[in-house]
Amino acid sequence: MSRTDARAVYDLDEAIARSKRYQAAGADMVFIEAPRNLDELTKIHEAFPNTPLMANMIEGGKTPLTDTAKLRDLGFRIVVYPTAMTYARAFADEQLVETLIQTGSTKSYEDRMITFDKFNHFVGLDQVNAREAQYDAKHMAAELATLKA
Rank of each mutant, 00 (worst) to 15 (best):
residue 66 T to C: 03
residue 92 A to I: 12
residue 42 T to Q: 07
residue 131 R to I: 09
residue 138 K to Q: 14
residue 14 E to A: 08
residue 53 L to V: 06
residue 53 L to Y: 04
residue 76 F to G: 01
residue 33 E to C: 06
residue 90 A to P: 01
residue 120 N to Y: 15
residue 145 A to R: 15
residue 76 F to K: 00
residue 83 T to R: 05
residue 109 Y to L: 09
residue 60 G to R: 00
residue 105 S to D: 14
residue 101 I to T: 04
residue 103 T to Q: 15
residue 140 M to G: 11
residue 116 F to R: 14
residue 36 R to F: 01
residue 67 D to W: 00
residue 138 K to E: 15
residue 10 Y to Q: 04
residue 73 D to G: 04
residue 121 H to F: 05
residue 14 E to M: 06
residue 142 A to C: 13
residue 67 D to L: 02
residue 4 T to H: 09
residue 107 K to L: 14
residue 4 T to I: 02
residue 114 I to Y: 12
residue 94 E to N: 05
residue 110 E to I: 12
residue 113 M to E: 12
residue 44 I to E: 00
residue 110 E to L: 15
residue 54 M to A: 05
residue 141 A to V: 15
residue 115 T to L: 14
residue 70 K to M: 01
residue 115 T to M: 13
residue 114 I to R: 05
residue 106 T to R: 08
residue 18 R to P: 07
residue 113 M to G: 12
residue 109 Y to C: 06
residue 137 A to C: 11
residue 99 T to F: 08
residue 72 R to H: 00
residue 101 I to R: 08
residue 31 F to A: 03
residue 34 A to W: 11
residue 48 F to C: 06
residue 106 T to L: 08
residue 50 N to Q: 10
residue 110 E to C: 13
residue 55 A to I: 03
residue 26 G to D: 07
residue 55 A to Q: 01
residue 149 A to W: 11
residue 16 I to E: 09
residue 120 N to S: 11
residue 8 A to W: 10
residue 53 L to Q: 06
residue 123 V to C: 10
residue 66 T to R: 03
residue 15 A to C: 10
residue 48 F to G: 04
residue 112 R to H: 13
residue 148 K to Q: 12
residue 90 A to V: 08
residue 56 N to D: 06
residue 103 T to M: 11
residue 59 E to H: 03
residue 78 I to S: 02
residue 95 Q to N: 08
residue 142 A to M: 14
residue 79 V to I: 06
residue 6 A to T: 04
residue 105 S to C: 12
residue 11 D to N: 11
residue 17 A to M: 06
residue 55 A to V: 08
residue 3 R to H: 10
residue 85 M to W: 05
residue 12 L to P: 03
residue 106 T to D: 09
residue 121 H to V: 13
residue 19 S to G: 04
residue 15 A to R: 04
residue 107 K to V: 13
residue 7 R to M: 02
residue 52 P to D: 01
residue 146 T to V: 13
residue 111 D to C: 12
residue 31 F to W: 10
residue 81 Y to P: 09
residue 20 K to C: 07
residue 104 G to Y: 01
residue 109 Y to A: 10
residue 63 T to N: 02
residue 49 P to T: 04
residue 38 L to H: 03
residue 67 D to N: 12
residue 136 D to M: 11
